[in-house]
């Protein structure tokens, strides 16, 4: 059973994927590894929800997919952030900042 150490907030996964792809094109497995590395295993992304999320973002036009060769020269589907995806990421990041700050103020009153 995949253990969720911390459940992701609704909608947070989309933002994290967009943020990950902001560094450059990446395939699904790469995104999943990267997310786990960055979050240092605190937060394990359920791979079962990763791919649906990728397809969702693609349908919305925030990321684009095309087939390319992976590091070990296998065919893999690479995702790239689109212009509207970048805008979306900016908006979500700003939102997140505001939300995080607000939650912090509540949790640790000065």
């Amino acid at each position: 059973m995949p253990a969720h150490r911390t459940d992701l907030l609704q909608g947070t996964l989309d933002m994290l994927i967009l943020r990950t792809l902001a560094n450059g094109p990446m395939h699904g497995f790469g995104v999943s590894v990267r997310l786990q590395q960055v979050s240092r295993d605190v937060m394990r992304v359920n791979q079962g929800s990763l791919y649906p999320a990728l397809h969702r973002l693609e349908r919305r036009g925030w990321i684009q997919a095309e087939w390319g060769n992976s590091e070990n020269n296998r065919r893999a589907r690479f995702y790239t952030l689109t212009r509207s995806g970048r805008k979306r990421l900016d908006a979500e990041a700003e939102n997140w900042e505001r939300l995080a700050a607000a939650v912090n103020r509540v949790m640790r009153p000065a």
Binding site: Q47, G48, R59
Partner: peptide, 20 residues
């Protein structure tokens, strides 16, 4: 396979997402 949560459910979910 366990980490992925099974191939078919993921596929089904992806199809759902793709079609709106």
């Amino acid at each position: 396979l366990i980490d992925l949560g099974g191939l078919e459910p993921v596929k089904e979910a992806c199809r759902d997402e793709r079609r709106g």
